[in-house]
């Protein structure tokens, strides 16, 4: 790939590396897909949670880490995604396809919402999204057909628990794969470059002809769809929604933020690692109850103050190493010619 720099240089978009990562990723994915035939049900059942956590962290990171929109209201879309299953399931769709259909429907709902949310910036955007989540919950619980505030269970569901678990597992895995691949391609595309320039300097980006609002809106909708799909999985695994206050709870935002911060905000790898760390913490310590939440809060503050790049960000900074090649690097075509640094 040549560029306008000069004939002596090329812009490396890491095409080769992208192919390798793609192949390795596909292998991991295939392994995960056949894992239910190898491991016991309770293992794969736990993995479902890991998969939706990774989806949540990945999409929140896309929103906050890449587009600079710090939302504490993604629970609006988690809740809508979960409740959407009832809507489409009641229409006769099976619950698994309902996850995907509901996710698309939530994306359609998120589009007009973005016009409200984008009236606010920075910290006020954050609280604004929180208000939207609250209002969404308050509207949803007004519908008798959705359990009117008491929660609901899925009516037509696979009878056999093993198959139910298996199907949920595959849907969760597919959504996680989609979330990562979509984020990866989004960032490698023209949009990714636009996003990073917006995050660095919105005014400058605008003056360079980047359609700032449009770019942010795409990310907002995609992130909402990701959260909705994760919400759908949560609903499938719980056989329904036990409490609207939980599914629409701000705690989900706390978890997303924690995962992304500990893993490393603004990297693709970070949220995945953060989700794994959180998953393990949750697995072993969640019986601590309230103090567990306190520990998460304290850890998030400490990481923000003393390890702002997160675990993965620190590793990749120290060793200049990335698994997912996003962005590009200008390299001399002939080794020996040094790039002039200003």
């Amino acid at each position: 790939m040549t560029s306008q720099l000069s004939a002596d240089y090329k812009v490396d978009h890491f095409q080769k590396k992208a192919t390798v990562v793609g192949l390795v990723g596909a292998a991991v994915f295939l392994f995960a897909a056949v894992a239910p035939y190898i491991f016991a049900t309770d293992v794969t059942s736990a993995w479902i949670k890991l998969f939706y956590l990774i989806s949540l962290a990945t999409t929140w990171n896309l929103l906050a880490g890449y587009a600079g929109m710090v939302s504490v209201g993604q629970q609006a879309y988690i809740g809508l995604g979960a409740y959407g299953i009832f809507v489409f399931n009641d229409m006769g769709l099976d619950p698994y396809s309902s996850v995907l259909v509901a996710s698309v429907a939530v994306g359609i709902i998120a589009f007009p919402i973005s016009y409200v949310a984008f009236r606010l910036r920075g910290g006020y955007f954050a609280i604004g999204t929180w208000v939207i989540a609250e209002a969404t919950r308050q509207i949803v619980i007004r519908f008798d057909s959705l359990g009117s505030g008491r929660g609901r269970s899925i009516t037509t569901y696979t009878e056999d628990a093993i198959y139910r678990n298996l199907f949920t597992y595959w849907v969760a895995l597919a959504i996680m794969g989609l979330a990562i691949v979509a984020t990866f391609y989004l960032l490698r595309s023209r949009l990714g470059v636009a996003l990073q320039s917006i995050r660095d300097n919105e005014v400058a980006a605008k003056s360079m002809g980047i359609k700032v609002s449009q770019t942010k809106r795409i990310v907002f909708v995609v992130a909402a769809m990701g959260a909705a799909a994760a919400g759908g999985i949560i609903c499938l695994q719980g056989l329904g929604v036990a409490s609207p206050n939980t599914i629409f709870g701000v705690n989900y935002s706390a978890f997303m933020i924690f995962m992304v911060l500990i893993g490393g905000i603004g990297t693709i790898e970070g949220p995945i690692i953060g989700a794994i760390i959180y998953f393990l913490m949750d697995y072993y310590f969640s019986q601590m109850g309230l103090w567990y939440m306190v520990v998460l809060g304290v850890l998030a503050i400490l990481i923000m103050l003393f390890l702002p790049r997160g675990v993965w960000g620190e590793i990749s900074h120290r060793f200049n190493f990335k698994v997912f090649p996003v962005g590009h690097q200008v390299q001399p075509l002939f080794p020996g010619i040094k790039l002039k640094k200003k």
Binding site: G68, G122, V250, L290, M293, V294, G297, V298, M304
Partner: peptide, 24 residues
């Protein structure tokens, strides 16, 4: 000094810590 994100995250951390400590 670290930008816009850090103070938001820290105050959000407090908003998670305080109610859970109060319940405990």
């Amino acid at each position: 000094r670290m930008g816009e994100l850090a103070p938001l995250m820290i105050t959000f951390g407090f908003s998670v810590i305080i109610p859970n400590v109060l319940i405990s």
